[in-house]
């Protein structure tokens, strides 16, 4: 079982440091360029996460199916506004998902007579999908952000995140002044935190 489980997650989690997903810049370009194969690949990689986020928020499967359908249709139709230099496709899809979920919730609330409205119970305890769905969404939002930090910030943060080195160990390892390492850590963490917070506002 352990080996099977590992095989199942390999594509997303190859080796340390773990990559957020197997989505690549080439796939970004293919999607932006209208390659329908890239849409199918996006669906394969991200539809379960989209579905889980929706199911948790709406509390029912039918609604989650509708949101999943809506998200990928919206993503494809608005691909001309997709700008890989601003956000990678996984993050963009998470943003569209949050918007589609909000739309689904407000339309269900308006229609109080619908059966779905009666079932409109959010799932704050995360029994659907568990806390892993939120973490996966956050990871997709941070997709490639470490690479985008530039150097030496990227190396500093990789050592802090994945090697669990303290700032003075990093300072010695990279032969950088302690103060420099500390301020890079602060600015890089602020940058990552902003990526997590602006996602729904940005789309």
């Amino acid at each position: 079982m352990e080996a099977t489980r590992y095989a199942a997650v390999w594509r997303e989690q190859p080796l340390a440091p773990p990559a957020a997903s197997a989505w690549t810049a080439e796939l970004d370009a293919a999607f932006a360029g209208g390659d329908e194969n890239a849409l199918a690949e996006a669906y394969r990689q991200f539809a379960p996460l989209v579905h889980t986020l929706a199911a948790r928020s709406l509390g029912n499967r039918a609604g989650a199916d509708d949101v999943t359908q809506e998200v990928f249709i919206r993503a494809w139709r608005s691909r001309s506004t997709f700008d890989p230099s601003r956000a990678r496709l996984p993050a963009w899809i998470v943003g569209i998902t949050r918007n589609a979920i909000a739309d689904a919730r407000s339309s269900s609330i308006k229609d109080l007579r619908s059966v779905q409205a009666a079932q409109l119970a959010a799932d704050p305890d995360g029994t659907v999908g568990g806390p892993d769905a939120d973490l996966l969404a956050d990871r997709l939002l941070l997709h490639d952000e470490l690479e985008r930090l530039g150097e030496p910030q990227g190396s500093i943060m990789r050592l802090a995140f994945f090697d669990d080195l303290t700032h003075d160990q990093i300072s010695r390892r990279l032969e950088l002044p302690l103060g420099t390492v500390k301020s890079h850590i602060r600015r890089s963490l602020q940058h990552l935190r902003r990526r997590l917070e602006v996602d729904s506002a940005a789309y």
């Binding site: 489980r5 199942a8 997650v9 997303e12 989690q13 773990p18 539809a47 379960p48 996460l49 989209v50 579905h51 889980t52 199911a55 499967r61 989650a64 199916d65 999943t68 359908q69 659907v128 999908g129 568990g130 806390p131 892993d132 769905a133 973490l135 996966l136 956050d138 990871r139 939002l141 941070l142 470490l146 943060m157 995140f161 994945f162 963490l189 990552l192 935190r193 990526r195 997590l196």
Partner: peptide, 19 residues
Amino acid sequence: RAVDAARSQPDPGTLTQPS
């Protein structure tokens, strides 16, 4: 939250599947 997102290795096996 940013630290957790970077360090975590969430299990995709817990996700639900669209119909």
